[in-house]
């Protein structure tokens, strides 16, 4: 199996404070990898560092191309879609405008129009709200919009930052079901950061456990699921 992303010696900094310490990891093409760990372990930081949104060192290679020193927007244009913490909704734009933004980035408008239909297949609720200001959506709808926006970029790799954040359990289950379908049908590889470890372990096939900016252990999801000491120590259940 090939890897869509290979990361070596990734470190990241917030001002003078170092938040990541030489992290290595890989993401399998077509797979779902989860980054788990407690608050402040560096999960969100890892996603931000991958997209060069903060100061970082180390190399990241996506599908054979070095993206360590590229600007955020260029990494995105190469097929990395980042669904940020807090969803990053353009509150003042309508739902439709949020989605149509991808037409600015993409050249293949015909394919983008098809992707728009695809998004409505996955999230029919958004179609009902097209002309609504995105800031007025409910939390779950905003998360759906954020994922849809990412999908509109026709990504090869999706970085998902806590898709369950602040949502009702039922909504979370719905979103995770859709993520699974997206992974299977659209062949999008995923790197997912989650607090809800049980849920993420179900979706993911591979797991990295982070603690204070370092990788503690990694392996197939089943390994962590079956290892009670590991679960109790790092995931708290």
């Amino acid at each position: 199996m090939t890897n869509i992303l290979e990361v070596k010696g990734l470190s990241a900094y917030y001002g003078p404070i170092r938040a990541l310490f030489d992290i290595d990891f890989t993401i399998a093409t077509g797979g779902v990898t989860a980054l788990l760990g407690a608050n402040g372990a560096g999960k969100t930081t890892t996603l931000r560092a991958l997209c060069n949104m903060i100061r970082r060192t180390g190399t990241s290679v996506m599908a054979g191309q070095d993206i360590s020193r590229k600007a955020t927007e260029d990494i995105v244009r190469m097929g990395v879609a980042h669904v940020p913490e807090g969803r990053g909704t353009f509150a003042g734009l309508t739902v439709e405008e949020n989605l149509r933004l991808a037409f600015h980035t993409r050249r293949d408008h015909a394919a983008a129009r098809r992707d728009l239909e695809l998004v409505f297949d996955y999230f029919p609720r958004l179609k009902e709200r097209l002309k609504q200001q995105a800031g007025t959506l409910s939390g779950g709808e905003q998360q759906m919009l954020a994922i849809s926006r990412a999908l509109m970029l026709a990504p090869r790799l999706m970085l998902l930052d806590e898709p369950s954040f602040g949502l009702a359990p039922l909504v979370v289950q719905e979103i995770f079901r859709i993520l699974r379908r997206i992974n299977e049908h659209e062949k999008v590889s995923m790197l997912i950061v989650e607090q809800n470890a049980a849920l993420a372990l179900e979706l993911a096939d591979h797991v990295y456990l982070l603690e204070t900016g370092r990788v503690v252990t990694s392996g197939p999801s089943s390994m962590v699921q079956n290892d009670e000491t590991l679960r109790k120590a790092y995931l708290g259940y």
Partner: peptide, 15 residues
């Protein structure tokens, strides 16, 4: 407009 409203998110949309 997107870039003005939320620069960080706009970058993540490739703007």
């Amino acid at each position: 407009r997107a870039a003005a409203q939320n620069p960080a998110s706009a970058r993540l949309m490739g703007v």
